[in-house]
Amino acid sequence: MTLFSGLSAFSITPTDTAGRVDTAALARLLERICTAGAHSIGLLGSTGGYAFLLREERRRAVAAAVESVEGRIPIIVGVGALRTDEAELLAQDASKAGATGLLLAPMSYTPLTEEEVFQHMSAVAKAGDLPLCIYNNPGTTRFVFSDDLIVRLAEVPNIAAIKMPLPADGDFRGKLGRLRARLPADFAIGYSGDWGAAGSLLAGGDAWYSVVAGLLPAEALALTHAAMAGDRAQAERLDQAFQPLWNLFKEFGSFRVMYAIAGILGLCQVDPPRPILPLRSDDVARVRVAVDHLRA
């Protein structure tokens, strides 16, 4: 496996109400990912609430993660920030702390142009001096990477992969084919959006950047192995077991649901950062049913 391939498990980042990272709880979550055998950890991604954390807390989280996993699994660290200079510093912090790779989304308040995103990505890739994955997350950033921009960025030193959203028409194979025809052979294309994991991997995607794997890594890994082996029947059977959870992800947003799952599994009792509110007790009960269904 290369760095940006296979199952990348994205953990929540447990914090107290003041936004201070609970490094002991984070280490417990990452240990589950290591033990399950995921191919990488996604730290401080959207699931990890990076946008809610101060630079010092992000630095503490990376240091704790590197110390906890002791080189057993690669760590890909999200370094998104509104300002380019801040993202450059975050990339340098992650590199110095021992991260294996970086993940960068073009955060913004003012809508960005393609040239602005190109220069932002190029600057951060240079500052971090680690393999970097473009985070194409229009649902959050409201910026959509064109194929032309992806091709241009693939020529920038250190930019080695892209994390794609699910195609609106569900045509993974067509989208992958069009991109691969224009990109270097070693440029990795993976997908987020957990309910599209089976389809993206069966179509030849390099990686599943998985929310649910942050807390249920063994179950997510079974789906990954089946799909990457081309076992459509098994992959679709396993994906069907996830469907109640996928439905809750779509209804409430996976971020809120993940915090509920952490409590249900007894891994940590923390609320999402405000202004995000925890799920109501009756909705948590629905999450519990979905988790029990999956694990059964």
Rank of each mutant, 00 (worst) to 15 (best):
R173P: 05
R173E: 15
G174A: 06
K175G: 03
K175I: 00
K175D: 07
K175N: 04
G177H: 01
R178M: 00
L179D: 02
L179E: 05
L179R: 00
L179G: 09
R180G: 04
R180T: 00
R180C: 02
R182S: 06
R182A: 01
R182C: 06
L183R: 10
P184I: 01
P184V: 06
P184K: 01
A185C: 01
A185R: 08
F187M: 09
F187I: 03
A188T: 01
A188C: 12
G190N: 01
S192C: 00
D194I: 12
D194W: 01
W195S: 15
G196V: 02
A197L: 08
G199V: 04
G199R: 05
G199M: 10
S200P: 05
S200M: 05
S200K: 00
S200F: 04
L201C: 10
L202K: 00
L202I: 07
L202G: 08
L202C: 06
L202P: 03
A203P: 07
G204S: 07
G205Q: 08
G205W: 12
G205S: 09
D206W: 07
D206M: 09
A207M: 13
A207F: 10
W208G: 04
W208R: 01
Y209D: 07
S210N: 04
V211P: 04
V211Q: 00
V211R: 03
V211I: 07
V211W: 03
V211T: 10
V212R: 02
A213R: 07
G214S: 10
L215Y: 09
L215N: 12
L215A: 12
L216W: 13
P217W: 03
P217K: 04
P217H: 02
A218Q: 13
A218K: 15
E219I: 05
E219W: 07
L223K: 06
L223N: 12
T224L: 09
T224E: 15
A226I: 02
A227F: 04
A227G: 08
A229T: 14
A229H: 13
G230H: 11
G230W: 12
D231M: 14
A233Y: 11
A233Q: 15
Q234K: 14
Q234A: 14
Q234F: 09
Q234C: 13
A235Q: 01
E236M: 14
R237I: 10
L238D: 11
Q240M: 13
Q240W: 12
Q240E: 09
A241I: 00
A241E: 11
F242G: 15
Q243T: 11
Q243H: 15
Q243S: 14
